[in-house]
């Protein structure tokens, strides 16, 4: 029986879709059979982040409306044959799907997949309710900014109210240099405020931008964000992985910079 995990945040633009793509890729790299579902009907994006937008024939709404079978709508990833994407519809709106239909869909996929990751839309309306309907656990993504953390708190409350068992936190786009100067909240600060367990810290990394441009998630690559996402994937599988020492890598960059100065 597969596990259904919803990736959510409340606020938009904090990295839900990027996190879904990268964690899904990480789990697939470790041999798990993974399905990613874009539940953001009307504003689909996971397909372009995965670089699979040119393969879409059927979508989530086609599946729930029985226009096609689930297998016809699932798109196999370019690089990892055990990673699949169920894209969202671009031309419908959130009301095209009901929480009951989502529950049934994730229920059907459980038999086929080890992990089903749901990319949740921003907000707390219908789309959010659809996304969490079939979920066992949740990953809440936030950045160390007041607006994102406040919305994350609201989301955590709603997840608790809807009996989503485990909720873990991902602090995204952390800048160690700014934290050191006291101009950005640290991951500890955010964890203290939100009072849920941390599962990963992803540094602010320009490689993410490059990776989305190319439509290839960067999990497992040499850069900091790639390692951070790999670590999150491993922690989901139950491995005890120490957190990246972002300070050390910072001095690495300084060393790097000093080479150029010479």
């Amino acid at each position: 029986m597969g596990e259904v995990i919803v990736i959510t945040s409340g606020k938009g633009g904090v990295g839900k879709t990027t996190s879904t793509a990268n964690i899904g890729t990480g789990l697939a790299m470790m041999g798990k059979k993974v399905a990613l579902i874009d539940t953001d009907i009307g504003l689909r994006n996971l397909d372009v982040v995965m670089g699979l937008e040119n393969r879409i024939v059927y979508n989530l709404v086609d599946v729930v409306e029985n226009n096609c079978r689930i297998k016809q709508a699932l798109i196999k990833d370019k690089r990892y044959p055990n990673l699949y994407l169920l894209p969202s519809a671009q031309t419908k709106d959130k009301s095209a799907v009901t929480p009951e239909q989502m529950k049934k869909l994730t229920g059907d996929l459980r038999n086929e997949f080890d992990y089903i990751l749901l990319d949740c839309p921003a907000g707390i309306e219908q789309g959010f309710k659809n996304a969490i309907a079939g979920a066992d656990s949740a990953l809440v993504v936030t950045t160390p900014e007041v607006s994102a953390v406040r919305d994350a708190d609201r989301i955590i409350g709603l997840l608790e109210a809807n009996d989503i068992g485990q909720t873990h936190l991902i602090v995204n786009r952390l800048r160690a240099d700014m934290v050191k100067e006291g101009n950005m909240m640290s991951s500890d600060d955010v964890v203290e405020i939100l009072a849920i367990d941390l599962i990963g810290i992803v540094p602010d990394d320009e490689h993410i931008v490059i990776s989305t441009n190319n439509g290839e998630p960067l999990t497992g690559s040499d850069c900091q964000a790639g390692q951070a996402y790999m670590n999150i994937s491993k922690r989901i599988l139950g491995e005890d992985v120490p957190y990246l020492d972002l300070e050390v890598t910072k001095s690495f960059f300084q060393r790097f910079a000093s080479i150029f100065k010479r």
Binding site: V146, V149, R150, D153, V179, G182, N183, M185, S186, I193
Partner: peptide
């Protein structure tokens, strides 16, 4: 520091 300000404002808001 601005991160401390952020923290205390957030705590209040939350």
């Amino acid at each position: 520091s601005s991160s401390d300000i952020a923290k205390s404002r957030l705590k209040l808001a939350i």
